[in-house]
């Protein structure tokens, strides 16, 4: 891939155009998002690593097939998240399994942070707290779970969430507010 180096400074939108000319350029887009989307898929689905990879592969293929439908007025990442999100939902419908937040990822992160040498007790407390937070989020209705996840775990803006979930910004705001209230209520109850 001699072009990798040349195209490193290109924007996602430029890479979309280049991918339409030569499919090899699509690798550059995949490289940028592969790990992020794999994490996202594992977080919102109950798939194991292999299944998550399959979903990711199908998502990237769909993105490639629909490159001409990409609207440059949107952020590529929002568009790509939307396709990935829809692919997870589609897999969930196929398998009739409920998307869940996947905890092994969190356990992995917990182990990594333990190795980093901060106060062990603080780390354990913080991670237990994280686990509890995720458990509560996981138990929320799907519509609240989705927005909470995108807002607080993926750190997306309201506009990006609106583009990913294809809902009006106002609705996203309302959902986040309601989700926060429900979350707070459950969190207080679990204390």
């Amino acid at each position: 891939m001699q072009s990798n180096y040349i195209h490193e400074d290109k924007t996602d939108e430029d890479l979309v155009k280049l991918s339409l000319i030569d499919s090899n350029n699509f690798v550059l887009l995949m490289n940028r998002y592969e790990n992020k989307f794999l994490r996202y898929i594992r977080r919102i689905s109950n798939s194991n690593h292999e299944d998550a990879e399959d979903i990711l592969q199908d998502s990237f293929i769909k993105m490639y097939q629909n490159l001409n439908a990409f609207d440059p007025k949107l952020k590529f990442s929002s568009w790509a998240y939307r396709i990935t999100h829809n692919q997870v939902i589609s897999e969930y419908r196929k398998k009739k399994s409920r998307p869940l937040f996947y905890f092994s990822e969190i356990v992995d992160e917990m182990l990594t942070s333990l190795k980093e040498g901060n106060s062990l007790e603080d780390k354990i407390d913080a991670d237990l707290q994280n686990k509890k937070i995720l458990k509560i989020i996981n138990e929320l209705d799907k519509k609240y779970r989705e927005v909470m996840h995108l807002k607080f775990i993926e750190n997306k803006t309201y506009e990006e969430i609106s583009d990913i979930l294809q809902k009006p910004i106002g609705t996203v705001g309302t959902l986040i507010n309601r989700a926060k209230k429900k979350f707070k209520k459950e969190y207080e109850r679990d204390k």
Binding site: S23, V27, M30, L38, E53, Q57, I61, Y64
Partner: peptide, 10 residues
């Protein structure tokens, strides 16, 4: 995974 996808596309 990128390699697999590009191969599949081709």
């Amino acid at each position: 995974i990128s390699k697999k996808i590009i191969e599949k596309i081709k």
